[in-house]
């Protein structure tokens, strides 16, 4: 059981649906109108459609294919083809535990999400994908792989890395509170890190 950082919380406003990955699992990540974030298997149990193409209606996620709606507990709540039918409780999306900590959304591939202790007073900067493995990304930072990478040469930057495979790693980057000009410099630093890591990966 591992907990993965899948997105920056501010990139998932209410009503948004997107695809995410946690330890090889293909997930739909969405946030209801009232602000609850959810991570489920990216597959509608009805006909296998990726739920990440779906849309949010209030506190429910609807599948794009036939409009089946799932509530925040992942149970099917409405089947439009049979509007008067109460869907059987057995129709559910497979849900994963999710926690929001330090501006990052964390998802466990099984069991409970257990995010690392987050530094206080961090702000989200950006998410970007490195075309290399986690070890190479950490090497470019001058570090060993860890759930949080505190950059020795750039003390205001923290990276939460999410390994997606041998040639892809997501980096969710946080900073100390910075002035606008310093934020832009921090963005350039993340680009430089990515170039360094990707060159090393060949």
């Amino acid at each position: 059981m591992t907990t993965f950082p899948v997105a920056l919380a501010h990139d998932l406003p209410p009503g948004r649906v997107q695809r995410a990955f946690a330890g090889g699992r293909d997930l739909v990540l969405w946030r209801s109108a009232s602000g609850r974030a959810m991570a489920w298997d990216n597959r509608c149990p009805h006909r296998g459609m990726r739920l990440s193409h779906g849309f949010v209606r209030g506190e429910r996620l609807a599948c794009l294919y036939h409009g089946w709606q799932y509530g925040t507990e992942a149970a099917c709540a409405h089947i439009p083809a049979h509007p008067d039918l109460a869907p059987p409780a057995t129709i559910r999306a497979a849900a994963y535990d999710l926690a929001e900590a330090g501006g990052v959304i964390w998802v466990a591939d099984e069991g409970y999400a257990d995010p690392p202790d987050m530094p206080l007073a961090v702000m989200p900067l950006r998410s970007l994908t490195f075309r290399c493995d986690l070890a190479t990304l950490a090497w470019a930072c001058g570090l060993e792989p860890a759930p949080l990478l505190f950059l020795p040469e750039h003390p205001s930057l923290v990276i939460a890395p999410n390994p997606l495979g041998p040639d892809r790693t997501e980096a969710h980057v946080l900073t100390a509170p910075l002035h606008a000009a310093d934020r832009i410099a921090a963005i350039h630093q993340t680009e430089a890190l990515r170039r360094l890591a990707e060159e090393a990966a060949g």
Binding site: R43, P45, H46, G48, M49, H53, I91
Partner: peptide
């Protein structure tokens, strides 16, 4: 965007 790509004939796979 349907998963899996093949058509499941086992009734347990889709509802």
């Amino acid at each position: 965007n349907q998963i899996p790509a093949g058509l499941p004939l086992d009734p347990r796979m889709e509802i």
